Amino acid sequence: MLGRLCSKIACARDAVATLTYDYGDQMAAVGPLGRVGDPHAHDLCAIHVERLSVPRGWLVVRHETLRA
Rank of each mutant, 00 (worst) to 15 (best):
37 G>T: 06
38 D>S: 01
19 L>F: 05
39 P>G: 02
26 Q>V: 06
45 C>P: 01
17 A>W: 00
45 C>F: 06
5 L>V: 13
60 V>A: 05
7 S>N: 13
59 L>D: 06
46 A>P: 00
68 A>Y: 05
17 A>P: 00
8 K>E: 05
5 L>E: 06
30 V>A: 02
6 C>P: 03
22 D>R: 13
42 H>S: 08
35 R>S: 08
49 V>I: 11
7 S>I: 04
11 C>Q: 04
1 M>P: 04
14 D>S: 10
38 D>F: 02
16 V>Q: 02
30 V>M: 03
52 L>F: 05
64 E>M: 11
56 R>K: 15
31 G>E: 01
55 P>Q: 07
65 T>Q: 14
63 H>T: 13
10 A>N: 12
12 A>E: 08
2 L>T: 15
35 R>E: 11
16 V>H: 01
67 R>Y: 05
64 E>A: 13
40 H>K: 09
25 D>Q: 15
57 G>T: 11
60 V>C: 01
64 E>R: 15
63 H>R: 14
33 L>V: 09
58 W>T: 09
50 E>D: 15
57 G>K: 06
65 T>H: 14
2 L>K: 12
8 K>L: 10
47 I>L: 06
28 A>E: 00
48 H>P: 01
42 H>Y: 03
64 E>P: 02
58 W>R: 05
11 C>I: 12
51 R>F: 10
27 M>H: 07
41 A>S: 07
9 I>C: 03
50 E>L: 14
64 E>I: 11
14 D>L: 07
12 A>D: 06
68 A>V: 12
40 H>F: 02
28 A>W: 00
60 V>E: 00
18 T>P: 02
2 L>W: 09
45 C>T: 08
16 V>S: 03
42 H>G: 00
34 G>Q: 04
7 S>Q: 06
49 V>T: 14
48 H>R: 10
21 Y>T: 12
2 L>G: 13
26 Q>H: 15
26 Q>I: 05
24 G>W: 07
62 R>I: 10
9 I>F: 08
16 V>W: 00
66 L>I: 09
36 V>T: 12
54 V>H: 06
11 C>F: 12
61 V>N: 06
46 A>S: 15
61 V>H: 07
51 R>Y: 10
36 V>K: 02
8 K>M: 09
56 R>N: 08
55 P>V: 11
52 L>P: 00
3 G>T: 14
66 L>S: 12
41 A>Q: 03
61 V>Y: 05
61 V>W: 04
65 T>R: 15
1 M>Y: 12
52 L>H: 08
43 D>Q: 05
20 T>F: 00
60 V>R: 08
25 D>C: 09
56 R>P: 07
49 V>Y: 01
8 K>D: 02
17 A>T: 13
11 C>P: 03
7 S>C: 11
42 H>D: 01
45 C>V: 07
34 G>L: 07
54 V>N: 04
27 M>A: 10
18 T>E: 02
20 T>L: 04
11 C>N: 05
52 L>K: 09
59 L>P: 01
48 H>A: 06
10 A>L: 11
57 G>I: 08
4 R>G: 07
